[in-house]
Amino acid sequence: MSLLKVEDLRVAFPGRGLRAKPVEVLHGVSLEVGAGETLGLVGESGSGKTTIGRAVLGLVRPSQGEIAFDGRDIARLRPRERRPLAKDIQVVFQDPYTSLNPSLTIGDILAEPLVVQGATARSARARVLKLLDQVGLPSDAAERLPREFSGGQRQRVASARAMAPAPKLIVCDEPVSALDLSTQEKVLDLFIDIQRSTGVAYLFISHDLSVVRHISHRVAVLYRGDLVETGPAAMVTSEPSHPYTQRLLLAAPVADPVLQRERREERRRLGAAA
């Protein structure tokens, strides 16, 4: 059985103006994430991929469809009913700095969700030190503030915070797009290591096919609110069948300037033919 199953998900936002009709941004999307699996959800800005993540997190209310987590429909739970799910569903946002309270030490940031769930101060402290070690940060990081860390280190802290309650699923919303390429690779490898050691599943949202290729087992491609292609990561990111996915692949930068120029020309040709 799938850990997360999204069926015919539709989301509409109010239009501008008093008489404007609602604008539907997701048009019946269906996808699944298995336990311990990474599903890469890829598409350009405005495709609706972040809206899917927000719907799974309960931050957006669907206008139609179901979101089943561990066999239970969670699409329309009230805030009080949804609160216990925080232990099992966590999130890592794009900007690691704005998602961390700048006035709290890293130790307090990591301990907070544990204390809320009833952990003692001693057990929370022990868990925090273990988490810091798991994400490759020294134990004295617990006494420091977020501003004392680099972007890559702050994303490690954000990952540790998401892992604190030992969730079953983490929604990763563009978690490496604000980082330089070398730091991106290190953080992606960290996500992979965490998954191997804990069995957590990821819904990994990105606009970059090369990023989702690195981390995903399967890839789903979203275009203007519709799912246009899905399949094993190796196949979708190397031999895509849909023209839009082909354009995404050609948009990914490569080190060879000649090949890069050829890819740009091919992308223009595909765009003109679409």
Rank of each mutant, 00 (worst) to 15 (best):
G107W: 14
N101Q: 01
A160P: 01
L270Y: 01
I194G: 03
F204A: 05
G53T: 06
E262F: 02
E265Y: 03
D88Q: 13
G136D: 07
P240E: 04
Q134E: 12
R268D: 15
K186Q: 15
V221K: 12
R196Y: 06
V200R: 08
R54Q: 14
E265T: 03
S197D: 12
V116P: 09
P102V: 04
V60T: 13
S210A: 14
F69M: 01
R247Y: 00
S210H: 09
S139F: 13
P14T: 13
G40E: 01
E265S: 09
A160H: 02
V33E: 05
G48P: 02
A234C: 06
H214D: 06
F204D: 13
L59R: 06
P102N: 03
L132A: 08
R261N: 11
L222C: 07
I67H: 00
P232W: 01
A86V: 06
S47V: 11
T230Q: 14
Q94V: 02
E37G: 07
I215T: 05
S150R: 08
M1Y: 01
V221Q: 07
L188H: 07
I215A: 13
E7W: 03
V11N: 01
T38E: 10
A126R: 10
S206D: 14
A273C: 05
V128K: 05
Q260I: 04
I194T: 04
A233N: 03
R83N: 11
F204W: 12
I194H: 03
G40R: 01
K130L: 11
M163Y: 10
L250E: 06
A160Q: 01
R61T: 15
I192M: 15
L169N: 06
H27F: 10
Y97N: 05
P102Y: 04
V25K: 04
A162V: 10
A220D: 05
R196I: 00
V221G: 06
R76H: 14
D226V: 15
K87M: 09
R261T: 07
I205H: 11
V92E: 06
A141C: 08
A75T: 04
I52S: 09
